[in-house]
């Protein structure tokens, strides 16, 4: 089989796929796309399935954490990603054979690729979430009790913090504290895993899937909506205008209300950092870990949660998750993990 590579021409598709899989969260892919395009000007990135790597070879995951606004201003630094990954390598005392993305949804899909380029390593065709989730630990490894440690966080100022050990509940607050100290955003490397474990426990083929999704999206973006939806393998829940937005507040999910302009149906989209669930006329239609996406109907661009405006013409649809989550994952990635109750009552 021919070696698969990500080229500069693939960036638009990769970004589009990642934006869709971001489900309205995961950060703005545009900064990452700029950088990736810049880095791929002179080289390309080799894409390998975890199963093709030596089973005991170590894979490190890289990504960005923190505020999208800070990232849009300070940009991303491949050097920081490499520094964080190196710090992790030092902890595990072994060579790293490949780099991977924490999540294939949103900005971090691209950041994973950027990290791999900077480290000069192949990029694993897979991730740990199959979409975007707000917490680093909402992933397939965590489901099997694997902690992200040793984990390293690096700032543009050259500071690197290494956390050799932390319990599952401590990950978010510790990471938030470090990130705040680093100016609101930072590069992170963690979940050093053997390729064998990853092939067994990770989400397989998600980078290829993301690229394919993005290609289909770009090809059908200007086509009639039913064509676009069918090409994406998505389910259409409504096309209409946003009538009301109730922002999330504390741990309580917010909602976006769309009135379908075709049949007047009431389409409700619940959200926290991501769009989590949608109900049509009060009947649940899709819910996390399904990928609920809201597209601007003018440009067909996938919208971030905070980009949705009252009066905007939007498309509400959902994509099946890239990973077949077992029932035991409900509390980790299901609606209840986001404070949504009663979604599965029927």
């Amino acid at each position: 089989m021919a070696e698969r590579r990500i080229e500069r021409e693939d960036v638009d598709a990769f970004a589009a796929g990642a934006a869709l899989l971001g489900a309205g969260g995961g950060g703005d892919v545009r900064v990452g796309a700029h950088l990736l395009r810049h880095l791929l000007a002179e080289r390309s990135l080799r894409l390998v399935p975890a199963a093709d790597l030596p089973p005991d070879g170590i894979v490190v995951h890289t990504g960005a954490v923190g505020s999208p606004d800070v990232i849009s201003e300070r940009l991303l630094s491949p050097v920081d990603l490499a520094r964080a990954a190196a710090a992790v390598a030092e902890q595990v005392m072994g060579p790293i054979r490949a780099a991977a993305a924490f999540e294939i949804g949103g900005l971090n899909a691209l950041v994973g690729a950027i990290g791999a380029i900077e480290l000069g390593l192949p990029f694993v065709d897979g991730d740990l979430m199959g979409r975007a989730f707000p917490k680093l630990t909402q992933n397939t490894l965590a489901l099997h009790g694997v902690a992200p440690v040793p984990l390293a966080v690096a700032s543009p100022a050259g500071d690197v913090v290494v956390v050799p050990l932390m319990g599952p509940r401590a990950v978010e607050p510790i990471l938030a504290g470090i990130t705040a100290g680093m100016g609101g955003a930072a590069s992170v490397a963690g979940y050093p895993t053997t390729a064998g474990d990853l092939a067994r426990l990770g989400v397989r083929g998600s980078v290829s899937a993301c690229l394919e999704l993005g290609r289909r999206f770009l090809a059908a973006r200007s086509a009639a909506l039913p064509v676009l939806v069918a090409d994406l393998g998505a389910r259409l829940h409504g096309v209409g205008r946003v009538e009301e937005i109730v922002p999330r507040h504390g741990g309580t999910p917010g909602t976006v209300t769309v009135i379908d302009s075709e049949d007047g149906a009431v389409v409700r989209v619940d959200h926290q950092e991501e769009f989590l669930a949608t109900a049509v006329d009060g009947v649940p239609a899709a819910c996390t870990p399904d990928v609920v996406a809201v597209l601007d109907n003018r440009s067909r661009r996938p919208l971030q949660v905070e980009e949705v405006r009252v009066g905007q013409a939007v498309v509400v649809c959902s994509l099946p998750p890239l990973h077949a989550w077992p029932d035991s994952a409900r509390d980790l990635v299901g609606p209840t993990a986001f404070g949504l109750v009663g979604m599965e009552d029927r």
Binding site: P253, T255, R268, D270, A279, D281, G282, V283, P284, L340, V341, G342, M343, D345, R346
Partner: peptide
């Protein structure tokens, strides 16, 4: 949003 589901049911 729970009331929404309740109205439906």
């Amino acid at each position: 949003y729970r009331l929404d589901a309740l109205v439906r049911r």
